[in-house]
């Protein structure tokens, strides 16, 4: 991100990283998540899912900031994001 001056607390502010996941076989290819992704990281895949729809995939997964908007706008419950560490891996889930 470009700043006209460097914020004083730039080193302390941590940008949240997220990881977006698509449940391919639920998708019906409406494209809402692609149109409304705040970071524009999703694109429509050229591949088809089991029902014959194109589904979204993360073209630049490192841009995800875990805003959950794809998750709330998806009418098919087919995409969601979760918090990830700096390398883009999910923290271990305690069962």
């Amino acid at each position: 991100m470009k700043y006209w001056r460097q914020p004083l607390d730039r080193e302390e502010i941590k940008v949240v990283r997220g990881r977006v996941e698509v449940i391919k076989d639920r998708c019906k290819g409406c494209g809402f998540c692609i149109a409304y992704c705040s970071r524009g990281l999703l694109v429509m895949s050229r591949k088809f899912n089991r029902k014959g729809y194109h589904y979204p995939e993360a073209a630049q997964p490192e841009l995800c900031v875990n805003c959950h908007f794809c998750e709330v706008i998806c009418p098919e419950f087919a995409i969601f994001s979760s918090e990830a560490d700096a390398a883009g891996n999910q923290p271990p889930v305690g069962e």
């Binding site: 019906k28 290819g29 409406c30 009418p75 098919e76």
Partner: peptide, 9 residues
């Protein structure tokens, strides 16, 4: 529901 239907949201 059809693709793009608002009911899912």
């Amino acid at each position: 529901w059809c693709s793009g239907c608002g009911i899912g949201i």
